[in-house]
Simulated scan of single mutants.
Amino acid sequence: MATGGDVVEQTPWTHHFLGLSRAHELSTGEGVGVALLTPEVDGGAPALADAVEGGQSTDCLGFGTSLAGVLAARRVEGSGLLGTAPEASVTVVPTGDPRTGLASPQEIAAGIGNAVDSGARVVLVGTGTWEASPALESAVAAAEEADTLVVAPATVPTSRGPMPGHPAQHASVLSVAAHDVEGVPVARGPLVLPSGDLASVDLTAPGDRVVGTGPGGGHVSTAGDGVAAAFVAGAAALLMAREPDLSSEQVRARLTSTAYTSPRGDADPLSGHGRVDPLAAMAIAPGGTPVGVAGEGFVPDPSPRGSVEALPTAAVVSVALLLIVLCVLGGAVIRLGRARGWRPAAPGEPVPMRSDEPVR
Protein backbone atom coordinates (compact mmCIF):
# COMPACT_ATOMS: atom_id res chain seq x y z
CA MET A 1 0.00 0.00 0.00
CA ALA A 2 1.24 3.48 -0.85
CA THR A 3 1.76 5.96 1.94
CA GLY A 4 -1.39 7.79 2.97
CA GLY A 5 -1.67 11.30 1.60
CA ASP A 6 -5.32 12.22 2.12
CA VAL A 7 -6.32 13.60 5.51
CA VAL A 8 -9.98 13.60 6.56
CA GLU A 9 -10.88 16.72 8.52
CA GLN A 10 -14.39 15.60 9.44
CA THR A 11 -15.06 13.32 12.38
CA PRO A 12 -15.68 9.80 10.99
CA TRP A 13 -19.16 8.29 11.24
CA THR A 14 -17.88 5.59 13.55
CA HIS A 15 -17.05 8.16 16.24
CA HIS A 16 -20.65 9.38 16.36
CA PHE A 17 -22.16 5.93 15.94
CA LEU A 18 -20.32 4.59 19.00
CA GLY A 19 -20.89 7.72 21.09
CA LEU A 20 -17.16 8.11 21.66
CA SER A 21 -17.29 11.82 22.54
CA ARG A 22 -19.40 11.04 25.60
CA ALA A 23 -17.52 7.81 26.29
CA HIS A 24 -14.24 9.71 26.44
CA GLU A 25 -15.68 11.86 29.22
CA LEU A 26 -15.62 8.69 31.33
CA SER A 27 -12.42 7.06 30.07
CA THR A 28 -9.73 7.37 27.41
CA GLY A 29 -8.03 4.04 28.07
CA GLU A 30 -5.10 5.61 29.89
CA GLY A 31 -2.72 3.06 31.37
CA VAL A 32 -4.15 0.02 29.59
CA GLY A 33 -1.76 -1.97 27.43
CA VAL A 34 -3.08 -3.55 24.23
CA ALA A 35 -1.03 -5.98 22.17
CA LEU A 36 -1.72 -5.89 18.43
CA LEU A 37 -0.93 -9.05 16.46
CA THR A 38 -0.33 -7.96 12.89
CA PRO A 39 2.55 -8.26 10.38
CA GLU A 40 3.59 -4.57 10.40
CA VAL A 41 2.63 -1.14 11.73
CA ASP A 42 4.03 2.22 10.70
CA GLY A 43 4.64 3.57 14.18
CA GLY A 44 6.05 6.79 12.73
CA ALA A 45 2.67 8.07 11.57
CA PRO A 46 1.90 11.30 13.48
CA ALA A 47 -1.26 9.91 15.11
CA LEU A 48 0.64 6.85 16.32
CA ALA A 49 4.00 8.34 17.33
CA ASP A 50 3.14 8.39 21.04
CA ALA A 51 0.77 5.44 20.95
CA VAL A 52 2.66 2.53 19.43
CA GLU A 53 5.65 0.60 20.67
CA GLY A 54 7.46 -1.75 18.36
CA GLY A 55 6.17 -0.30 15.11
CA GLN A 56 8.36 -0.29 12.04
CA SER A 57 8.87 2.51 9.56
CA THR A 58 7.02 0.70 6.77
CA ASP A 59 3.82 -1.26 6.40
CA CYS A 60 3.44 -2.95 3.04
CA LEU A 61 -0.26 -3.75 3.40
CA GLY A 62 -1.22 -0.80 5.57
CA PHE A 63 -3.77 -2.86 7.45
CA GLY A 64 -1.85 -3.03 10.71
CA THR A 65 -1.34 0.74 10.73
CA SER A 66 -5.06 1.23 10.17
CA LEU A 67 -5.96 -1.11 13.05
CA ALA A 68 -3.59 0.75 15.38
CA GLY A 69 -5.31 4.01 14.44
CA VAL A 70 -8.81 2.65 15.03
CA LEU A 71 -7.61 1.41 18.37
CA ALA A 72 -5.57 4.30 19.78
CA ALA A 73 -4.88 7.15 17.33
CA ARG A 74 -3.95 10.40 19.07
CA ARG A 75 -5.40 13.78 18.16
CA VAL A 76 -3.56 15.44 15.24
CA GLU A 77 -4.22 18.99 14.08
CA GLY A 78 -6.27 19.08 10.92
CA SER A 79 -7.51 15.51 11.35
CA GLY A 80 -10.93 14.42 12.54
CA LEU A 81 -9.73 10.92 13.41
CA LEU A 82 -9.38 9.88 17.03
CA GLY A 83 -8.87 6.34 18.30
CA THR A 84 -11.43 4.40 20.31
CA ALA A 85 -9.08 4.45 23.31
CA PRO A 86 -6.83 7.44 22.49
CA GLU A 87 -4.63 7.12 25.59
CA ALA A 88 -4.14 3.36 25.59
CA SER A 89 -0.67 2.06 24.77
CA VAL A 90 -0.24 -0.35 21.85
CA THR A 91 2.52 -2.91 21.60
CA VAL A 92 3.00 -4.41 18.16
CA VAL A 93 3.64 -8.16 18.12
CA PRO A 94 4.74 -8.97 14.52
CA THR A 95 2.58 -11.88 13.41
CA GLY A 96 1.99 -13.22 9.91
CA ASP A 97 3.29 -12.63 6.41
CA PRO A 98 3.88 -8.90 5.62
CA ARG A 99 3.03 -9.57 1.97
CA THR A 100 -0.33 -11.28 2.50
CA GLY A 101 -1.28 -10.59 6.12
CA LEU A 102 -1.99 -14.28 6.64
CA ALA A 103 -0.70 -16.21 9.64
CA SER A 104 -0.58 -19.85 10.67
CA PRO A 105 -2.15 -21.14 13.89
CA GLN A 106 1.35 -21.63 15.31
CA GLU A 107 2.32 -18.01 14.55
CA ILE A 108 -0.81 -16.65 16.21
CA ALA A 109 -0.29 -18.93 19.20
CA ALA A 110 3.25 -17.63 19.59
CA GLY A 111 2.04 -14.05 19.22
CA ILE A 112 -0.58 -14.48 21.96
CA GLY A 113 2.07 -15.99 24.20
CA ASN A 114 4.42 -13.04 23.61
CA ALA A 115 1.59 -10.60 24.24
CA VAL A 116 0.73 -12.21 27.57
CA ASP A 117 4.38 -12.20 28.57
CA SER A 118 4.56 -8.46 27.82
CA GLY A 119 1.82 -7.81 30.38
CA ALA A 120 -0.88 -6.72 27.92
CA ARG A 121 -4.39 -6.69 29.33
CA VAL A 122 -5.98 -6.92 25.88
CA VAL A 123 -4.77 -8.89 22.86
CA LEU A 124 -6.15 -7.83 19.49
CA VAL A 125 -5.66 -10.54 16.90
CA GLY A 126 -5.39 -8.48 13.74
CA THR A 127 -4.64 -11.46 11.56
CA GLY A 128 -6.68 -14.62 11.85
CA THR A 129 -6.54 -18.15 10.54
CA TRP A 130 -9.21 -20.58 9.41
CA GLU A 131 -7.44 -23.49 11.08
CA ALA A 132 -7.54 -24.52 14.71
CA SER A 133 -4.62 -26.20 16.46
CA PRO A 134 -3.75 -27.53 19.92
CA ALA A 135 -1.04 -24.85 20.22
CA LEU A 136 -3.57 -22.09 19.56
CA GLU A 137 -6.02 -23.57 22.05
CA SER A 138 -3.30 -23.72 24.68
CA ALA A 139 -2.23 -20.13 24.03
CA VAL A 140 -5.80 -18.89 24.47
CA ALA A 141 -6.19 -20.91 27.67
CA ALA A 142 -2.95 -19.42 28.99
CA ALA A 143 -4.22 -15.91 28.21
CA GLU A 144 -7.42 -16.64 30.09
CA GLU A 145 -5.42 -17.92 33.04
CA ALA A 146 -3.34 -14.72 32.99
CA ASP A 147 -6.53 -12.59 33.03
CA THR A 148 -5.86 -11.25 29.53
CA LEU A 149 -8.78 -10.61 27.19
CA VAL A 150 -8.33 -11.86 23.61
CA VAL A 151 -10.37 -10.16 20.87
CA ALA A 152 -10.40 -11.65 17.36
CA PRO A 153 -12.24 -11.37 14.03
CA ALA A 154 -15.14 -13.80 13.62
CA THR A 155 -14.14 -14.56 10.04
CA VAL A 156 -11.05 -14.43 7.86
CA PRO A 157 -11.03 -13.73 4.10
CA THR A 158 -9.83 -16.51 1.83
CA SER A 159 -9.80 -17.21 -1.90
CA ARG A 160 -12.94 -19.28 -1.28
CA GLY A 161 -14.72 -16.49 0.54
CA PRO A 162 -14.95 -15.76 4.27
CA MET A 163 -14.38 -18.65 6.64
CA PRO A 164 -14.79 -18.98 10.42
CA GLY A 165 -11.79 -17.40 12.10
CA HIS A 166 -9.60 -18.77 14.85
CA PRO A 167 -9.02 -18.18 17.73
CA ALA A 168 -12.43 -16.45 17.64
CA GLN A 169 -14.21 -19.78 18.07
CA HIS A 170 -12.75 -20.31 21.54
CA ALA A 171 -15.31 -19.71 24.32
CA SER A 172 -13.17 -17.17 26.20
CA VAL A 173 -12.31 -15.09 23.10
CA LEU A 174 -14.49 -12.15 22.06
CA SER A 175 -15.50 -12.99 18.49
CA VAL A 176 -16.36 -9.83 16.54
CA ALA A 177 -18.13 -9.41 13.20
CA ALA A 178 -18.52 -6.25 11.10
CA HIS A 179 -21.63 -4.15 10.63
CA ASP A 180 -22.24 -1.39 8.10
CA VAL A 181 -23.03 2.32 8.52
CA GLU A 182 -26.63 1.49 9.47
CA GLY A 183 -25.66 -1.11 12.07
CA VAL A 184 -26.65 -4.07 9.89
CA PRO A 185 -24.27 -7.09 9.89
CA VAL A 186 -22.13 -7.17 6.77
CA ALA A 187 -22.25 -10.98 6.56
CA ARG A 188 -25.02 -12.28 4.33
CA GLY A 189 -25.45 -15.48 6.28
CA PRO A 190 -23.98 -17.51 9.14
CA LEU A 191 -20.93 -19.69 8.61
CA VAL A 192 -20.75 -23.33 9.60
CA LEU A 193 -17.82 -25.05 11.28
CA PRO A 194 -16.59 -28.50 10.15
CA SER A 195 -18.38 -29.91 13.20
CA GLY A 196 -21.68 -28.66 11.81
CA ASP A 197 -22.08 -25.96 14.48
CA LEU A 198 -22.58 -22.34 13.56
CA ALA A 199 -19.51 -20.14 13.80
CA SER A 200 -19.35 -18.05 16.96
CA VAL A 201 -20.15 -14.31 16.92
CA ASP A 202 -20.27 -12.43 20.23
CA LEU A 203 -20.49 -8.79 19.12
CA THR A 204 -20.62 -6.61 16.06
CA ALA A 205 -18.84 -3.29 15.52
CA PRO A 206 -18.18 -0.92 12.60
CA GLY A 207 -16.41 -2.74 9.82
CA ASP A 208 -17.47 -1.02 6.62
CA ARG A 209 -15.99 2.18 5.14
CA VAL A 210 -14.02 2.83 8.30
CA VAL A 211 -11.48 5.66 8.34
CA GLY A 212 -8.12 4.67 9.78
CA THR A 213 -4.53 5.87 9.79
CA GLY A 214 -2.44 5.03 6.77
CA PRO A 215 1.30 4.49 6.43
CA GLY A 216 2.97 7.86 6.18
CA GLY A 217 0.33 9.68 8.22
CA GLY A 218 -2.64 10.06 5.89
CA HIS A 219 -6.01 8.37 6.16
CA VAL A 220 -7.28 5.25 4.44
CA SER A 221 -10.62 3.46 4.26
CA THR A 222 -10.69 -0.08 5.60
CA ALA A 223 -13.23 -2.80 6.25
CA GLY A 224 -13.64 -6.28 7.64
CA ASP A 225 -14.08 -8.19 10.86
CA GLY A 226 -10.51 -7.35 11.90
CA VAL A 227 -11.39 -3.65 11.88
CA ALA A 228 -14.53 -4.38 13.93
CA ALA A 229 -12.41 -6.29 16.43
CA ALA A 230 -10.18 -3.21 16.84
CA PHE A 231 -13.18 -1.15 17.97
CA VAL A 232 -14.14 -3.79 20.53
CA ALA A 233 -10.56 -4.03 21.81
CA GLY A 234 -10.61 -0.25 22.24
CA ALA A 235 -13.93 -0.44 24.10
CA ALA A 236 -12.42 -3.06 26.41
CA ALA A 237 -9.47 -0.74 27.11
CA LEU A 238 -11.85 2.11 27.98
CA LEU A 239 -13.71 -0.08 30.46
CA MET A 240 -10.53 -1.48 32.01
CA ALA A 241 -9.14 2.01 32.55
CA ARG A 242 -12.36 3.12 34.21
CA GLU A 243 -12.66 0.01 36.41
CA PRO A 244 -9.15 -1.47 36.79
CA ASP A 245 -10.29 -4.21 39.17
CA LEU A 246 -12.53 -5.91 36.61
CA SER A 247 -11.32 -9.30 35.44
CA SER A 248 -11.11 -10.09 31.74
CA GLU A 249 -14.21 -12.28 32.08
CA GLN A 250 -16.11 -9.43 33.74
CA VAL A 251 -15.07 -7.06 30.97
CA ARG A 252 -16.25 -9.59 28.41
CA ALA A 253 -19.57 -9.99 30.20
CA ARG A 254 -20.06 -6.23 30.53
CA LEU A 255 -19.47 -5.59 26.82
CA THR A 256 -21.83 -8.34 25.72
CA SER A 257 -24.60 -7.58 28.24
CA THR A 258 -24.73 -3.86 27.39
CA ALA A 259 -24.69 -4.24 23.61
CA TYR A 260 -27.55 -3.11 21.38
CA THR A 261 -29.41 -6.40 21.12
CA SER A 262 -30.50 -7.80 17.79
CA PRO A 263 -34.28 -8.14 17.26
CA ARG A 264 -33.61 -11.88 17.16
CA GLY A 265 -32.02 -11.82 20.59
CA ASP A 266 -28.66 -13.11 21.77
CA ALA A 267 -28.97 -16.19 19.58
CA ASP A 268 -28.72 -14.19 16.34
CA PRO A 269 -25.98 -16.04 14.41
CA LEU A 270 -24.95 -12.88 12.56
CA SER A 271 -24.66 -10.42 15.45
CA GLY A 272 -24.48 -12.46 18.65
CA HIS A 273 -25.27 -10.22 21.61
CA GLY A 274 -25.51 -7.21 19.30
CA ARG A 275 -23.65 -3.97 18.50
CA VAL A 276 -20.97 -2.92 20.96
CA ASP A 277 -21.84 0.16 23.02
CA PRO A 278 -18.77 1.54 24.85
CA LEU A 279 -20.72 4.23 26.69
CA ALA A 280 -23.34 1.81 28.01
CA ALA A 281 -20.62 -0.58 29.18
CA MET A 282 -19.10 2.19 31.30
CA ALA A 283 -22.39 3.68 32.49
CA ILE A 284 -22.60 0.98 35.14
CA ALA A 285 -21.23 1.79 38.57
CA PRO A 286 -19.09 -0.82 40.39
CA GLY A 287 -21.53 -3.35 41.74
CA GLY A 288 -23.69 -3.46 38.64
CA THR A 289 -25.98 -0.46 39.23
CA PRO A 290 -26.56 2.20 36.58
CA VAL A 291 -24.78 5.50 37.08
CA GLY A 292 -27.34 8.11 38.11
CA VAL A 293 -27.27 11.77 37.17
CA ALA A 294 -29.08 14.31 39.35
CA GLY A 295 -31.78 16.18 37.50
CA GLU A 296 -35.15 17.90 37.79
CA GLY A 297 -38.57 16.35 37.65
CA PHE A 298 -40.08 15.81 34.23
CA VAL A 299 -42.39 18.58 33.03
CA PRO A 300 -44.17 17.90 29.72
CA ASP A 301 -44.21 20.54 27.01
CA PRO A 302 -47.52 22.40 26.50
CA SER A 303 -49.87 20.61 24.17
CA PRO A 304 -50.44 22.30 20.78
CA ARG A 305 -54.16 21.77 21.44
CA GLY A 306 -54.11 23.77 24.67
CA SER A 307 -53.62 23.10 28.33
CA VAL A 308 -55.68 20.47 30.09
CA GLU A 309 -56.13 21.44 33.73
CA ALA A 310 -58.43 20.22 36.50
CA LEU A 311 -60.82 23.20 36.84
CA PRO A 312 -61.39 23.85 33.10
CA THR A 313 -61.91 20.14 32.54
CA ALA A 314 -64.51 19.95 35.35
CA ALA A 315 -66.37 22.94 33.91
CA VAL A 316 -66.51 21.40 30.45
CA VAL A 317 -67.79 18.11 31.84
CA SER A 318 -70.49 19.89 33.91
CA VAL A 319 -71.76 21.90 30.93
CA ALA A 320 -71.89 18.76 28.81
CA LEU A 321 -73.96 16.91 31.43
CA LEU A 322 -76.35 19.89 31.73
CA LEU A 323 -76.89 19.93 27.97
CA ILE A 324 -77.66 16.21 27.99
CA VAL A 325 -80.30 16.68 30.75
CA LEU A 326 -81.89 19.63 28.92
CA CYS A 327 -82.05 17.62 25.70
CA VAL A 328 -83.82 14.75 27.47
CA LEU A 329 -86.35 17.06 29.17
CA GLY A 330 -86.90 18.99 25.96
CA GLY A 331 -87.64 15.76 24.13
CA ALA A 332 -90.26 14.81 26.73
CA VAL A 333 -91.97 18.22 26.52
CA ILE A 334 -92.14 18.07 22.73
CA ARG A 335 -93.61 14.55 22.81
CA LEU A 336 -96.37 15.48 25.30
CA GLY A 337 -97.13 18.74 23.47
CA ARG A 338 -97.70 16.95 20.20
CA ALA A 339 -99.97 14.42 21.91
CA ARG A 340 -102.28 17.20 23.22
CA GLY A 341 -102.15 19.28 20.07
CA TRP A 342 -100.09 21.84 21.91
CA ARG A 343 -103.02 22.82 24.21
CA PRO A 344 -102.61 23.14 27.98
CA ALA A 345 -103.62 20.07 29.99
CA ALA A 346 -106.97 20.28 31.75
CA PRO A 347 -107.18 19.62 35.49
CA GLY A 348 -107.09 15.85 36.08
CA GLU A 349 -106.40 15.02 32.41
CA PRO A 350 -104.20 11.89 32.17
CA VAL A 351 -100.89 11.99 30.41
CA PRO A 352 -101.26 10.39 26.95
CA MET A 353 -99.32 7.21 26.28
CA ARG A 354 -96.95 6.69 23.37
CA SER A 355 -98.15 4.31 20.72
CA ASP A 356 -95.24 1.99 21.47
CA GLU A 357 -95.84 2.06 25.29
CA PRO A 358 -97.37 -1.18 26.67
CA VAL A 359 -100.80 -1.03 28.31
CA ARG A 360 -100.64 -1.74 32.06
Rank of each mutant, 00 (worst) to 15 (best):
S89K: 11
V90I: 15
V90F: 00
T91A: 08
V93E: 05
P94G: 04
T95A: 03
D97L: 04
D97K: 06
P98A: 12
P98M: 12
R99D: 13
T100C: 13
T100N: 07
T100S: 15
G101D: 06
L102I: 00
L102H: 09
A103P: 01
A103N: 08
P105V: 05
P105D: 07
Q106R: 15
E107M: 10
I108K: 02
I108F: 02
I108N: 05
I108Y: 08
I108V: 15
A109F: 13
A109Q: 06
A110S: 14
A110V: 01
G111I: 08
I112T: 08
I112P: 05
I112K: 01
G113S: 10
N114I: 09
V116Q: 05
D117F: 11
D117C: 06
S118N: 11
G119W: 10
G119R: 11
G119A: 14
A120P: 06
R121I: 03
V122Y: 01
V122G: 00
V125P: 06
V125Q: 05
G126L: 09
T127P: 04
G128I: 01
W130A: 15
E131W: 09
E131P: 00
A132M: 02
S133Y: 03
S133P: 09
S133D: 13
P134H: 04
P134T: 09
A135I: 04
L136N: 11
E137I: 00
A139S: 11
V140N: 04
V140G: 01
A141P: 08
A143I: 01
E145T: 04
E145G: 00
A146D: 13
A146N: 06
D147S: 03
D147M: 10
D147I: 01
T148E: 02
L149I: 08
V150L: 02
A152K: 11
A152V: 08
P153A: 12
V156I: 13
P157S: 05
P157W: 05
P157N: 07
T158S: 14
T158F: 10
G161Y: 09
G161V: 05
P162T: 07
P162W: 09
M163W: 04
P164K: 11
P164D: 02
G165A: 15
H166A: 10
P167T: 04
P167L: 06
Q169F: 10
Q169A: 07
H170A: 08
A171T: 11
S172V: 07
V173P: 13
S175M: 04
V176K: 12
V176S: 05
A177R: 10
A177G: 15
A177V: 06
A177N: 08
A178Y: 14
A178K: 12
V181N: 10
V181M: 15
E182A: 15
E182Q: 15
E182S: 14
E182Y: 13
G183A: 02
G183V: 00
V184W: 14
V184C: 12
P185M: 12
V186P: 14
V186M: 12
R188M: 13
R188Y: 03
R188G: 15
G189L: 12
L191E: 07
L191K: 07
V192A: 10
V192R: 12
